[in-house]
């Protein structure tokens, strides 16, 4: 991997809870190249918080520390809020689980995409409109002209997620963070969305951080996988080599999954070791 798009070294995020300080992320390090990097973990593993920290969108109560958290030319920890506003959406895009919460309900989706383009580039309204329509086509929406004028509530989950992707890609970011972006979708729709993401990442040479709880999904979709447990990375593997995972947590997760073809009497239960 030459010259990473994003470097993270020893990222730590802590909160002051009622029962004393609590570290949600405890020293996460990784480099992101032009690849699909999966971050897998269960709830409370700190995977989403890591994604948020990259965008500097952590809750106000969170204290973020790191040795390094930077793009090739910008130190994300030191950057002013104004710089961050230019980076969010323009250089780093974020796709979340439910597009309904990320889209404005009273503006047509086409206009929202066009607006996203206008905010981040110097162009005029007609060009933005053309670009938005082209983007709808790029995310394989049939009949983009009609969809351009539709409102978020008129969309199915899969279509909403396509819109979100279109909106994030219109300003041609270098990095895309997908936080459980396909978890709410049905299996067949999920495949289409993954395929689309895969395609776009390859064509545009993006770095994709794919945050998910679904180990099986990530291993088939991503190039590399970080497995997180209680705020730190327990293991980093090439996606194809997940079967050779050595860490008991990773192994436990893989075993606990019900399988379609190899039925078992009981599912092995993960034994959690406090030392992890």
């Amino acid at each position: 991997m030459n010259s990473p798009l994003l470097s993270v070294r020893d990222l730590r995020i802590s909160f002051n809870g009622v029962a004393g300080p609590f570290e949600a992320v405890r020293g996460v390090s990784f480099d992101l190249g032009r690849e699909k990097l999966g971050i897998v973990g269960e709830s409370g593993s700190g995977k989403s918080m890591t994604g948020r920290a990259i965008m500097r969108l952590t809750p106000r109560a969170a204290m973020v520390k790191a040795q390094t958290l930077c793009l090739p030319d910008v130190d994300l920890l030191q950057a002013s809020e104004k710089t961050m506003e230019r980076i969010r959406g323009k250089r780093i895009g974020l796709i979340m689980q439910d597009p309904k919460y990320s889209l404005n309900p009273v503006v047509s989706v086409g206009e929202q995409i066009a607006e996203a383009y206008l905010i981040h580039t110097r162009s005029n309204a007609s060009e933005a409109k053309r670009k938005a329509a082209a983007m709808l086509e790029a995310v394989q929406i049939r009949d983009p002209e009609r969809v351009y004028r539709m409102y978020p509530h008129e969309m199915s989950g899969g279509m909403g997620q396509r819109i979100m992707i279109a909106m994030m890609l219109v300003s041609e970011p270098e990095i895309l963070i997908a936080d459980e972006a396909t978890s709410a979708l049905d299996v067949t729709v999920r495949l289409e969305i993954l395929n689309l993401l895969d395609d776009l990442v390859r064509k545009r040479g993006l770095g994709l951080i794919f945050i998910s709880h679904d180990l099986n999904l990530v291993r088939h979709f991503c190039d590399r996988v970080l497995i997180m447990y209680r705020g730190h990375v327990v293991e980093t593997l090439k996606a194809g080599e997940l079967d050779q995972a050595t860490h008991p947590y990773t192994r436990g997760l893989l075993d606990a999954m019900p399988r379609i073809h190899t039925p078992r009497r009981r599912l092995p239960v993960l034994k959690r070791d406090p030392a992890w």
Binding site: V187, T188, R190, L191, D214, N216, L217, R219, H220, F221, R259, I260, H261, T262
Partner: peptide, 8 residues
């Protein structure tokens, strides 16, 4: 579709 990212 389920097998696509199942164990197969």
């Amino acid at each position: 579709a389920s097998e696509a990212y199942g164990e197969a």
